[in-house]
């Protein structure tokens, strides 16, 4: 049962196309599994479309025939209508990844994305998505059964979408489809008893805050 959803403002920015690709992919992955957010997206898209195409502007959806003789546009129209209307929507392929000895379907949003090989330390293993977005970094992250991520907080934000399995931290336990947004006001140490596969997006390296794991800060970039 999905309990954690993207905030309304984030869904609105998603619909408006204002977010980096990695965040769009994370939200899309959640929405694919969440009927509630799918409905919200439908309403928001409608509202956004009406805002963008609203009739406040004098010329639109009014007297459309007035400037029908605009040469440039007529040329464009002629060029477009000389094409065939034969577009065929391809059935989307489903990508899978092997984890914990099984094949898991990945979200559709990852269909055209490449990622590097999984590399691991202990029970953590991750593959960086090749999105080329500067400080925004995104990974597929596997936590093996009984594995955990040392206590850390974040300079920026960290988004986790749970694609398979479960994990828990000091605040909650999470299940498949949950969308978890954390920023510097949170410190947590996720533990996965049965293992899990996540999509993570972070806009800066996590900062480890406790005892020995502070030593991990130089390799903090490795974890998320």
């Amino acid at each position: 049962m999905i309990k954690h959803h993207p905030k309304h403002e984030l869904l609105a920015a998603f619909v408006a196309g204002e977010l980096p690709a990695a965040l769009n992919i994370a939200i899309s992955a959640h929405v694919e599994l969440c009927d509630e957010c799918q409905q919200a997206i439908t309403l928001l898209t409608q509202a956004k479309a009406d805002e963008v195409f609203s009739i406040e502007d004098e010329s639109v959806f009014n007297n459309v025939e007035v400037d029908l003789d605009d040469d440039f546009e007529d040329l464009m129209i002629a060029q477009i209508t000389s094409q065939k209307g034969d577009y065929v929507d391809e059935e989307p392929t489903v990508c899978t990844v092997e984890y914990a000895g099984k094949q898991v379907n990945l979200p559709r949003a990852l269909n055209s994305v490449n990622w590097a090989k999984f590399q691991g330390v202990g029970k953590l293993s991750r593959a960086r998505l090749d999105l080329d977005e500067g400080t925004v970094r995104s990974y597929l992250l596997q936590i093996g059964a009984g594995g955990s991520v040392p206590m850390h907080t974040h300079k920026g934000y960290e988004v986790t979408v749970l694609l398979d399995g479960s994990f828990e931290d000091e605040m909650c336990s999470y299940s498949k489809g949950d969308f978890i947004w954390l920023d510097q006001s949170f410190t947590h140490s996720p533990v996965s008893n049965d293992g899990c596969l996540c999509l993570t997006v972070a806009d800066d390296a996590p900062v480890f805050t406790q005892g020995l794991s502070k030593l991990l800060n130089p390799i903090g970039r490795f974890i998320y």
């Binding site: 195409f53 502007d57 010329s59 639109v60 459309v64 546009e73 007529d74 129209i77 209508t81």
Partner: peptide, 16 residues
């Protein structure tokens, strides 16, 4: 594939 209707659609959406 009505071209007249397409032109009307085009003129409606183009400015926006």
């Amino acid at each position: 594939r009505d071209k007249k209707s397409f032109a009307l659609l085009f003129k409606s959406f183009a400015p926006k």
